[in-house]
Amino acid sequence: MNAPLSSAPATAPEAWAINVDHVGKTFTLDGGKELKAIDDVDIKIGQGEFVALLGPSGCGKSTILRLVAALEDVSTGRVTVEGSNPTALSRAHRLGVAFQDHALLPWLTIRDNIALPYKVAGRPVDDKRIAELLALVGLSGFEKARPRQLSGGMRQRVSIARALVLKPDVLLLDEPFGALDAVTRRHMNVELQRIWSEQRITTLLVTHSVEEALFLADRVIVMSGRPGRIIKEIQVPFARPRSPDVQRTMEFHHLADELTLALEPEGHH
């Protein structure tokens, strides 16, 4: 397992798997008006670290994820992933992303949807790996099904399997369970925690759920909105693999309260 590379020199920029270096992003609206989505955001994520970006909707946290995924360009500052421009990672097919909307192709079977990254990368499809991932996300036997035949939670699990199939160096999760009901969501978090603990890929999770962030991440970064800024950062002390019982401990509740307070508009002055 890839333990965090604590031996790497912290001063060299290459030491960070993801380095969001004093980044600002301004969108120009239709009327020519400018909207500052995020301002001077500085996030450093180490190798094999799981960081959750927590904030209210519209605080620019998804924008940060899109900058790291090279889906948007920065206005000020710089983003590097594995020491180079973020586009380099996706071009090398070493990036895994699970979107809020599962983005499965409706005309492909589940197996073919998970095989898509191989096809796009021009690599031979590894059916053993696909079978392994389907088992990991608890969907063995659904190879020939189509996305519309699956429930929302199942589709989301397929999209996570697809994000993992090429063994990416970096995993980006944009509220992957945001559209699910609370019960399914909690269940999916337990599953994701189990899957992640087996692979330990550098991960950035964007979420607005305090419990989700605390249960999954090594570190939680709290953002405030308009323009998005970092207002708090905490290290999550729970050992891995985490059992769902962690969520019932006093320490968990205490940290959850602290984060919830930070999220409240009057919490930070």
Binding site: A69, A70, L71, S90, R91, A92, H93, L95, V97, F99, D101, A103, L105, W107, L116, P117, K119, V120, A121, G122, L172
Partner: peptide, 24 residues
């Protein structure tokens, strides 16, 4: 837009996107 984002983060070429996304 979601599917186009997906193909971009997968590092797809224009031809691959045409064949595997735009045409279907």
């Amino acid at each position: 837009a979601g599917h186009r984002d997906l193909f971009q983060v997968l590092g797809s070429s224009r031809t691959t996107r045409l064949l595997r996304l735009d045409l279907p």
